[in-house]
Nucleic acid binder design. Structure first.
Lengths: 219, 219
DNA sequence: TCGTACCTTGACCATCTGGTCAACAATTTA
DNA sequence: TAAATTGTTGACCAGATGGTCAAGGTACGA
């Protein structure tokens, strides 16, 4: 997760010289700011978010927010870095030794539940990528690409062994990502079109996705 | 497509009294503005777009843009209204008389090709819905909801007739939307992760989606 | 040709917003 | 406790941006 290194300003703002030890107060306030900023950025996008909103949401003054993060962009980078690993980690769990269809369905299910439980993270990335990924492009080009290529090889191995339908591995990953993140990113649309309870909504989503994936991926 | 009526300001700005006939120049310039605004809004979102950018892209002065559309929001509404019908029309083509899996796959294919050919429209809606659909929520709640419910009934009929796997119709539609629009909305990510040509990218996407859908939906 | 209505824009204004700074408060350290 | 470091904020600034307006230009019917 090298996003951290990409943006030098994402640390403590007041300290310009070498890396000093972080105070308790620093850690606490930076965490509060990042948590507040996730809300604001994921709702309004980078440009639509204001430092004032973030400060208000974090319960402190704008000047104080900019004391910890010199620039608005630094807050944004910190939020992305803080969220990115959690958001993408499950992919790493795909086990080449496991049963392909079980592994893939478990991955999809985990992503679907994450979309429900932490939609902010999903919308944060959706916004970032919609704008052309100006900040996390370096990460996409290097670490995410390496991870995805590794997992594509795993999937291809399954296909070659006749344990999985002959899909294009990369596009299977895209399919799982899109189908699950949709429930977070397009929540407003889904709320408008759904008539049932949220509970049964997600139950139906799981059922349908499981059915299509398990049948669609059978060799 | 009643979005037009929702925003009174989306017509000619200078004329405040009743509906007068539109000049040739009016029609031409409004079309130029809407086309330019689609580019700008889809790239930067509502808040990130500036009237100056739109004016520059349309080849006229900012003041002139605001002569035809009194408010920035009016431009935005006009762009949404102009794009919405084209973007959602294919769903209406689902023929209850046709073969279910063929019909659904043709619909998915059409959406996938639209994502490739006119990604701006997709990204425009993605931005709008990510922000909570502040402008098109009334449309979602009424016309889109009615259309989707109608199509869900069609799908349910197919299921009841044993011609289709027992999925939740609404979620099947979500699956098709998400899997296809993903290629437009997340283009930046896809570009970063793809190593092949764009041609083979979309060929693989079609092949994988067809395989999973046709197998996954078989009764 | 003339007059009217429509078109176009540079200059301008009010507001919003990211960022700075000096002054003061709290906390840690010697 | 005294000094020094760290934390906090109201006031302020500069640039960006949505929107207005008066003044002048252009098309078009009578």
């Amino acid at each position: 997760m090298a996003i951290h290194r990409t943006y030098s300003g994402s640390g403590t703002g007041a300290v310009t010289a070498g890396p000093k030890k972080r105070t308790r107060i620093q850690a606490k306030n930076e965490a509060r700011i990042v948590a507040a900023a996730l809300d604001v950025f994921s709702m309004h996008g980078y440009r639509g978010a204001t430092v004032d909103q973030i400060a208000l949401s974090a319960g402190m003054s704008k000047a104080n927010v900019l004391y910890y993060f010199n620039r608005k962009e630094a807050i944004y980078s910190a939020v992305l870095a803080h969220t990115l690993s959690n958001w993408l980690n499950p992919l790493d769990d795909l086990d080449p030794e496991g049963d392909p269809i079980t592994e893939l369905w478990q991955y999809a299910l985990q992503k679907l539940r994450m979309s429900r439980e932490t939609p902010y993270a999903s919308r944060l990335f959706a916004n970032e990528i919609l704008q052309g990924a100006p900040v996390i492009r370096p990460f996409l080009d290097t670490e995410l690409k390496a991870l995805v290529e590794r997992k594509c090889r795993t999937i291809q191995t399954w296909i070659d062994a006749g344990e999985l339908a002959p899909v294009a591995p990369l596009h299977l990953i895209f399919l799982i990502w899109s189908a699950t993140q949709h429930y977070a990113d397009f929540e407003a649309q889904i709320q408008a079109l759904n008539t049932d309870s949220e509970e049964s909504l997600y139950a139906d989503a799981e059922r349908t996705l499981q059915l299509v994936l398990t049948r669609g991926l059978a060799p």
